[in-house]
Nucleic acid binder design. Structure first.
Lengths: 348, 348
DNA sequence: TGTTAGCACTCAACTCGTTAGAGTGCTAAC
DNA sequence: GTTAGCACTCTAACGAGTTGAGTGCTAACA
């Protein structure tokens, strides 16, 4: 069967209406509230076709129709294309900048928490923001200093000004001058290298050079390795989990609990992040509908994600999680907006 | 009316039974399953008395009885006293150490997350752990160093080895020697002071001493102030929020959503933390039942908290949040256990 | 050939009355 | 003081009946 103009109009009308009301929508409603001027009977015939084609379905025989995943997919694709066309047409004509929603904050961590919250408040859905992440960051600067007898502070600054620090317990004492020498030695050898590039050869050379401080150097390198590890697991901030309860179709006990559990267990969100980082090569916004999401517990939801990028190339993901019956247009708009703001914020 | 031995036995039986089944318990059940050898009619009379005294209540006329907040209170106080007596009797006789449940971890932050999780898994309730917090921490060590042109890294180590760091944008360049001098100057002036003790007099003296680097010193002091601020809001880790759904009396939509919201908005838990830090002067475990909790959204729950203490005197709180119908004995036992482990962990 | 009116049919949701069962309070007897 | 017995109350579960929204199909219409 073919999809003609009229069918598209009816499908859109069904989806729009369902998004608004959340109730299955019947043929009479469509006949009354569209400019098609067709009777309910004709609409019924068309709807039977649309159902056969898999775009809509009936919860039960004598109910109206609701969109299927495929129906939403069609709607979203259509909508995105139209939006793109609209954008192309007026180019940068007015590109109305919405006022900056994000408070100014100093620390990246706080900024991202803020983004998660702002998104949650604005969209009324659950949100997640993954911190920027980059493989193979290089070491920019290392500094060790003795803060008291037996305790040495090691500070490691990675590319992109990511700071890591540890306190190392050290049995032997170290005087200020030696400390200075060690610092110079460490920096001249390790600075500029990626964490992965520190191999055995480098380690043994450093240890040898350090003489009596060989053990200490080992400890420091261990600390660097630990920094690498803690850099590896992606930090994720979530917000608005309780928004889930606003949507009856998600708020029955088992579904809600699974969803909230996923939001709590941030490791599980990694799927979502990596998935959209992979596919999102064109930097666009991705919409996952129902079964399309890579996370099991979100099969009854839709997920909209976008990636943002730092100057240094590190990429992060942000996204919202809501019911399939979601105001896609508004969400995509909002996410696009926040994404822009975030890119700007990192560019100062 | 007086509370005699028999009434106490019946009250305990009602509560025990209700904790197990979650159903209102009737007179016949009590008559069958206690060693009192009384008929249901007698039990009924006693239960009528207990109801009049406010320890139990009926959801509706023809149902069994459930414990009231006062009933739980009586039960818990009684239980705690008995436990204490038992403990006193056998002194340290066997003091069976349960195996260490906590994985060894390096960073305090991870340790506390771990505690929250372990508690949640072990008790099947929602849990929270507040990071140790101490007012008036003194500064132990400050170090600034230039990591690249125009960017200066400031590291501040507070008492208890709490490390803070910031990157300061600095327009004027600074050579290594001057940097050293500034460090010495800063440390000799500020080290040993509490954050609050840095007053205008000290600031202006430092600024004057620093000469051309006066502005930089100001920036560094600002960074210290920021560190103080970020130290001020208590870090709280939560876990097991979804456990709430396991208890039907809490899992209706509005209640669950409020509770989860509170667990998400960690600031609201501050009440709970400060409250138990205040009252918990004897270092014991506190049980809040229903209306007793200082947090609005937990009026339908019970909360059990304990404080732990670091060597340096900083105190933190841990607690579990569950239904009033909670296995108090097991929970108190578990919390006591974790508390001991935590105290030990910080003592190495 | 596409569109429409009409009609029989289906199904969920609601209402209402009935019943069963658990539990109580009260009274009178032990 | 304790107990058996009985009338009473209230919820939960069940089932029948009703309503209303919506459908599919057919036949007539433009």
């Amino acid at each position: 069967m073919e999809m003609d103009e009229r069918k598209i109009k009816i499908l859109k009308a069904v989806i729009r209406n369902y998004l608004e009301t959340g109730e299955p929508v019947g043929s009479r409603t469509i006949s009354k509230y569209t400019d098609l001027n067709l009777s309910s009977a004709t609409i019924r015939n068309e709807m039977a076709d649309l159902e056969e084609m898999g775009y809509i379905l009936q919860p039960h025989t004598s109910a109206g129709r609701i969109p299927s995943d495929a129906g939403y997919r069609f709607y979203v694709d259509n909508m995105m294309r139209e939006q793109q066309e609209k954008l192309d047409k007026r180019e940068n004509e007015l590109n109305k900048k919405e006022e900056l929603l994000l408070e100014k904050v100093d620390r990246v961590e706080d900024l991202l928490k803020n983004v998660a919250k702002t998104l949650a408040v604005n969209t009324n859905y659950a949100t997640m923001v993954a911190a920027p992440h980059k493989n193979g960051r290089t070491i920019k600067f290392i500094q060790i200093s003795q803060i008291e007898k037996g305790k040495i502070l090691a500070v490691i600054v990675l590319e992109g000004n990511v700071i890591k620090n540890t306190i190392i317990e050290n049995l032997t004492d170290i005087d200020t001058e030696d400390c200075l020498k060690l610092n110079i030695m460490l920096n001249s050898t390790v600075a500029g290298l990626a964490l992965e590039e520190i191999n055995l050869a480098i380690i043994s050379r450093l240890t040898a050079q350090a003489g009596e401080y060989g053990m200490l150097i080992r400890d420091i390198l261990d600390a660097i390795a630990a920094a690498a590890a803690s850099e590896d697991d992606i930090q994720i901030y979530t917000s608005g989990a309780t928004n889930i309860f606003k949507y009856p179709e998600l708020s029955d006990n088992t579904k809600a609990s699974k969803l909230i559990y996923t939001l709590e267990e941030k490791k599980m969100l990694a799927n979502l992040v990596t998935d959209s980082l992979d596919k999102d090569s064109d930097g666009d916004i991705k919409v996952y509908i129902g079964e399309e999401t890579p996370v099991e517990s979100m099969k009854d939801c839709s997920v909209v994600t976008a990636t943002y990028e730092l100057e240094d190339g590190a990429k992060g993901t942000l996204g919202i999680i809501g019911p399939k019956r979601m105001d896609y247009e508004k969400v995509v708009e909002t996410i696009k907006n926040i994404k822009t703001q975030l890119n700007d914020a990192f560019k100062h």
